[in-house]
Amino acid sequence: MRPAKVHFTEIVNDNMVAMNLCLECAEEKGIDVNKAGSYGLGDLVAGLIDDTVDSEAERISKVRCPSCGYEYSDFKKIGRLGCPDCYDAFEAQLVQVLRHVHGSTQHAGKKAAQVGERAALRERMNVLREELSEAIRTEDYERAAAIRDEIRGLEAQVEDDA
């Protein structure tokens, strides 16, 4: 695990934005990590970690992802999210980070409409195969024949795509 090692704060539209990046990503963003402590470049104000102690900050840091149990404070420590669902859980907090890093909060590229299509078909086929052996075991041959037809249909679909 690469902990977040670079902390800096930037003023964006009069708002303080705290950033916590792992070393690698900070370097990729072109932040000179050796100077991060006394950074004069651009509009970065260094050394101010967002420990502006107030109850709001306290509350925010305790927001928890329901899927993986990650807290927002974990993200600040490590510089990475715990799971894909964290993006929804920490949505409000991440908006400023995204605006800072990307200058945007809206994806505009490749769409994943077809993602996992064949994987889903195969998953469905596995379920059907189990149902098929169950139907054969209980000697429900009418049902078995129907399931077999459905499996053949799916097989043809998987092959067509391949």
Binding site: L81, V101, H107
Partner: peptide, 10 residues
């Protein structure tokens, strides 16, 4: 809205 989700928001 956010596209492909990655471990690091960058």
């Amino acid at each position: 809205r956010l596209g492909y989700l990655t471990a690091c928001p960058t």
